[in-house]
Design a protein around this nucleic acid. Structure first.
Lengths: 207, 207
DNA sequence: TCGTTTTTTCTATGACTGTAGAGAATAGCG
DNA sequence: CGCTATTCTCTACAGTCATAGAAAAAACGA
């Protein structure tokens, strides 16, 4: 029997190589040749694992979402209400180099989704899932009396969704005015508005 | 003397054709041939007006910003404070078909800006200009007593910037949950948070 | 009507792309 | 050591793209 490779693991290596290329050289630089080279292979070696480029990209984009979702689940474990909401949003905000790179991936993804129905659906599903989480956490916050604002939960969830998505853009394209510290302060400022001026953010582990 | 064309006007025709193509078929469909055809010309006719594709795109993107800025100037004339702020943001939000198409343009633009220094600078300058306007309007609102929130103006301006940018994405990729009506309500909800629960939006001219 | 100058068309070119598939290289097993 | 199934390399191909530039067309003044 010949050399045996773990196909799933290999796929993950290729996805990570893709991820690095897009973060470094943008989507234009993400050619099959470049990706293969980055992963340490020659041109045609990707085909057995991803028969087409679109398969590779779809898998790569999905993986970024899964990564974020896993982080969010871990970060909100044991929390509820505004505390959970804050932890949740902080996992999406580009607050470190890794998440800034994720922003560099998601922007090209949005552009693809504009003309690719299946990617648009993938995005819509993920965003709907996030929105549902936010609404749940807002509901908890209402019940706990943490949330006194006379604005509908739907609108608040919309604010937060647009805020964290917009932050993907500003963090990458205007880093001077939207540094991690500033984005973090922005989120806490918004939560303070929600709480009616009484919300104080937990001690923030620096960096 | 031969046929004479107004070069500036011709450039504008070409930019509008580009704009239509990108809105309809996405950035991938915006080839020189397609743009020329859309404008009613043959392949090579663009060169005298835009020597290279990048020149054309840079001009087209700049034009969208100018268009938005002109609209904002008109919409805020005679207003100040929160009223001006509201009118200002409403000109950026994708509240009608035209502005939804602008969102379809700006998303590919962001992606280009990720790896194109000059486009990144163009974006940063425009965003900085908008942010300055917002800060000015917030200052007016503070002086007029419209704004009681105990959150810094910098953070509020950041909220609004991220909100209107995020709305470009949600409006196009999740139109079901971010319709013009919902985005408009979101903005007013946020302003209500700012005013401390007392802000009531002016009668909205429907559509 | 003709001639000149601008404008536009049309074809060619070279670069780059994703994909395909034949062959070589490789590694585990007898 | 040798066999064989798997993995990988390499070359080739068809398509698309931006761009260049020669030639044709058009329009205005005389």
């Amino acid at each position: 029997m010949p050399k045996i490779v773990d196909h799933d693991q290999r796929r993950m290596e290729l996805v990570n190589a893709t991820w690095r290329i897009i973060a470094r050289h943008g989507m234009e630089g993400a050619t099959m040749r470049e990706i293969a080279t980055e992963a340490g292979f020659a041109n045609g070696a990707l085909k057995p694992y991803f028969p087409t480029k679109d398969d590779l990209l779809a898998f790569a984009f999905g993986h970024v979402f899964n990564q974020t979702n896993a982080r969010m689940a871990a970060a909100t474990r044991g929390l509820s209400g505004l505390g959970a909401l804050r932890a949740f949003c902080r996992e999406i905000l580009p607050l470190d180099e890794n998440r800034i790179n994720e922003a560099r991936i998601v922007i090209p993804f949005w552009q693809k989704a504009l003309t690719d129905e299946s990617k648009a659906r993938l995005h819509d599903d993920a965003m709907e899932q996030w929105r549902t989480h936010l609404l749940q956490q807002l509901h908890e916050a209402r019940e706990a009396g943490e949330l006194r604002a006379e604005v509908g939960d739907e609108d608040i969830a919309g604010h937060l969704m647009n805020l964290v998505l917009g932050a993907q853009i500003t963090a990458v394209l205007s880093p001077a005015h939207y540094s991690p510290d500033q984005l973090s302060a922005q989120l806490d400022g918004y939560l303070q508005l929600l709480a009616g001026g009484t919300f104080s953010s937990p001690a923030v582990e620096k960096k």
